[in-house]
Amino acid sequence: MSLLNIENISAGYGEIQVLFGISLHVKEGEIVSIIGANGAGKSTLLKTVSGLIKPSSGRVEFAGKPIHELPPDEIVEQALIHVPEGRRLFSQMTVYENLEMGAYSKHAEVGFAKNLGDVHALFPRLKEREKQLAGTLSGGEQQMVAIGRGIMAQPRILMLDEPSLGLAPVLKKDIFAAIKKIAETYGTTIVLVEQDVVNSLAISDRAYVMEQGQIVMEGNSEQLMADPHIKTAFLGL
């Protein structure tokens, strides 16, 4: 029985359809990657799950309950947390205030102090820069804040949209390591949308491949890493 069940979802922006009948599932405790090139519709998929976009057809079920008609704030309340693409920090607010905003929802209030401690343990630099305006941080630090915000929301599922985008290789490694650590330490289910195939497959259990709004391949990570199509399309081999 899956924690997250996406059945035949079609969605888009106004007249433009981006997703064409996507179906996938995520079991509790898994790390699942969704990989694909730019424009495949990965971000649109996450936005549909988190409620920013209403699907034109299909169902999304979380812990057995349908959520595809709920507004974003109610989905957050169920501990399905979306860390959006491009970090989207509140640039004129401090690091601390951004993390505070992560814990805005009622269910996250209880564990505020503990979660804050966890974030600081994971990303010590954020404690140093607590009072700094988020907009003045480096790219890597901003990504840490974005993920930290996600943790503050006490997630049952954490969906991350291209967390390594635009970061130097060293930083990328740190980010992926942090994500793996979150899954291991807290048992959080992770959905990882990425263009960096190697690194994301390395930390995930399973993966789906998206192309032009459809799932074209799925399987466990080892299998996919060895697949020739993947190798040519994404690894340039």
Binding site: G51, V76, F90, Q92, M93, M101, Y104, K106, A153
Partner: peptide, 24 residues
């Protein structure tokens, strides 16, 4: 205040604010 910060967050980035659980 909590509401005040939520208002500030919404004025900075309303989509991100929704993802924090702030009801627009």
């Amino acid at each position: 205040s909590r509401m005040g910060k939520a208002i500030r967050a919404t004025s900075l980035d309303r989509e991100a604010a929704s993802l924090m659980g702030i009801k627009q």
